[in-house]
Design a protein around this nucleic acid. Structure first.
Lengths: 235, 235
DNA sequence: CATCGTTGGATTGTTGAACAATACTCCAAT
DNA sequence: ATTGGAGTATTGTTCAACAATCCAACGATG
């Protein structure tokens, strides 16, 4: 009962050291493959070959497939196998609608968000600018994702955060479908900076307006590119 | 190439007739069990006994477990088994924060939502009142869930809809933890009616204000009941 | 020529048994 | 009261087998 006994409360939470199952490890690996584009949309994932390659049983692999299907990174077609999800223009529209619902209110209510969360937004912008300086376009895209993740995080809900991560991961797939060039991300970085400045100033209204424009522009650009592509592949 | 050829486009989508795997069927069944409270929070789901009872192999059952774990209805503890999720007061707070993020903006932007979606909100209120007239408290709770689902649906995103369903399902668990009496749902029905009336009037601001109060009140009521219970069980 | 059976091969869906790895219980020892 | 150590029950994972289904190719039919 001495005062030295509650040292335990100050120790880090066990969440980090949590033991992971084989299925989760495989799922984590496949997830990065999909997000990084090593597995491109539309590809079929053979149970037999993957289980042999990564030395897990088919059953374990299938558990991993189930996890990733719920995240919409893979899609399961009965008796045909699992495929890397290939979003359509309809999906793009829905993804942006979801992002509007998540990001705009979070920004609008940023006034009562902890300053730490606002700083995270700025950090993502900084990281993006560093990546641009080094002409690392992939990292720039990642930083952009983190920027929007940080915006949604202003809402202060762990569940919203996770959902947002999922939505952004799916958005990555969209870019993989159409091999987005550098020009696709570049102009948005300055936009991000402006949004963060407005936020740091406490001017949520301006930030919200900028973000609205951002999302509209980005969606338009993507959707038009998409329908053009879809019509092309229909021939 | 005659005009009669595109009759196929007017046929219903194949989504309904989609063949389902055993694992999905088991997952669906377990999901209803959890939501209906036949499986109460905290109970462990034995792989061996369940697989024997429902005549599926352990492997298939585990696939179902993975699906439901991703939905937060079950939680997976390594080498200990899967349990029906038992939300904490912290979870309750987070769930309500998530609902605020989802419902409030949807209501605020209800002006440009299709009238059909607004009607769905009213239908849920009607259903709730019918249930109250028949003193069917369980159906009343379901109608309340559908009401809020309909609110979130005003945002017009399929992904938001699914996420909202998930959040509400988890909220059901909250009620199961504390065997909510009829009095818990009853006063909210009138509140729902007022919100819908304001919506139908096109007065989004009023609806939004009412909903804010609703959520604050409901969260407070639940959280205080929860912390009392948590402290009680700590003894 | 287009459409429709049929057939064979490949892949997934599911099972059951087996074994390893781990957590839990109980009891003894300090 | 805490620690240490069997023993047991349950999960984690693998493997091999078979059933169910899709798919592509072929040929038959009109």
């Amino acid at each position: 009962m001495t005062a030295t006994e509650d040292y335990i409360d100050r120790l880090p939470e066990p969440a980090l050291a949590r033991p992971t199952s084989q299925a989760e490890r495989v799922a984590d690996m496949l997830r990065t493959f999909v997000i990084d584009g090593e597995l491109t949309p539309g590809v079929r994932l053979s149970e037999e070959r993957l289980s042999r390659k990564y030395e897990v049983s088919r059953n374990t692999l299938r558990e991993a497939f189930r996890l990733l299907s719920r995240e919409r990174l893979l899609v399961h077609h009965m008796h045909r196998g699992v495929f890397v999800n290939r979003p359509t223009s309809e999906d793009v529209r829905d993804l942006f609608n979801a992002r509007r619902s998540l990001e705009l209110p979070a920004v609008r209510g940023a006034a009562d968000a902890p300053a730490e969360l606002v700083r995270a937004v700025g950090a993502a912008v900084d990281e993006g600018e560093r990546a641009r300086a080094q002409e690392d376009w992939w990292r720039m895209g990642s930083a952009n994702m983190r920027f929007h993740e940080a915006l949604a995080a202003l809402a202060g809900s762990a569940r919203i955060n996770e959902f947002m991560r999922q939505v952004l991961a799916e958005t990555r797939l969209v870019f993989h479908v159409m091999a987005a060039p550098r020009e696709f991300h570049d102009p948005y970085l300055n936009w991000n900076r402006r949004i963060h400045l407005a936020l740091a100033d406490g001017d949520a209204a301006t930030a919200c307006g900028e973000l609205t424009e951002y999302l509209d522009t980005s969606e338009n650009q993507l959707v038009t590119a998409f329908v053009a592509m879809e019509q092309g592949s229909r021939a």
